[in-house]
Design a protein around this nucleic acid. Structure first.
Lengths: 124, 124
DNA sequence: TGTTTGTATTATAATAAATGATACAAAAGG
DNA sequence: CCTTTTGTATCATTTATTATAATACAAACA
């Protein structure tokens, strides 16, 4: 499994791991029933401590995206992710993105077109 | 100026201040030429240390949203925010939002409608 | 000069992130 | 049963970030 981890990013490593797995599953690149690499393996691949990967996996487990057993490691659940899609957190993050785009000069139409394309690319 | 700061949030206080000012300007609630409260004043209003507010203002200054002079404090610039609206950061954040919504069961159409409404509400 | 503003500086404390090392428990397979 | 492999727990340490307090300085006016 290829995860791109930016060691210089503001985003903590464990969050990056989590985010990329969420994205990979949503996009269909990783499917329900697929196994994820073991904690030790992924840690080795990325070059981080196993506990860092473990933190990502624990998050994913808590969110419902993965199921874990001790012998076989983590695999993708077919139940999706817990929670409401459109909660206040979603709205706040989306609104901030939109606001920043507007402040950087994007028109309403630009933002709409751009985001609709992103939605289509995630759902394709 | 009323800013809502959630002291329990994961998001650092200075980021919340910054975010709300960006949003307020993008939404038109705060206009180019408007003055922001002084660092000391806003810190007092919110109940945080002035250096925390100063960090937010320094960010906003760096981003181009505010202009600062030592006598009169911060005011909103009319130049908007530096940077490209649709940079890789925008796309990554948007894609993650979309991916999470999908994982929580939202259909493509649901996501489109919801976000288009948010865009309209920001731009109104 | 006095006042007000942002900014700089120093130091401290708390929290978060990341790590290393080790050990334990669970679950299978031989 | 023993061995292996897996996640998990635990402890300790280090580093980075956030937030603070206090103080002082510089800038820009009235």
């Amino acid at each position: 499994m290829i995860l791109k981890i930016d060691m210089t990013s503001d985003i903590p490593i464990y969050q990056q791991i989590r985010n990329q797995i969420v994205f990979g599953v949503a996009k269909g690149n990783i499917k329900a029933g697929d196994s994820l690499p073991t904690v030790r393996q992924l840690a080795n691949d990325i070059g981080v401590n196993p506990m860092t990967v473990n933190k990502a996996y624990a998050l994913l487990k808590e969110e419902g995206i993965i199921l874990i057993d001790r012998r076989h490691g983590a695999k993708i659940s077919n139940l999706g992710m817990k929670g409401n899609a459109f909660d206040p957190d979603f709205d706040q993050r989306a609104e901030l993105l939109i606001a920043e785009a507007r402040m950087k000069g994007a028109s309403r139409q630009d933002v709409k077109m751009h985001i609709l394309n992103l939605i289509d690319s995630v759902y394709e």
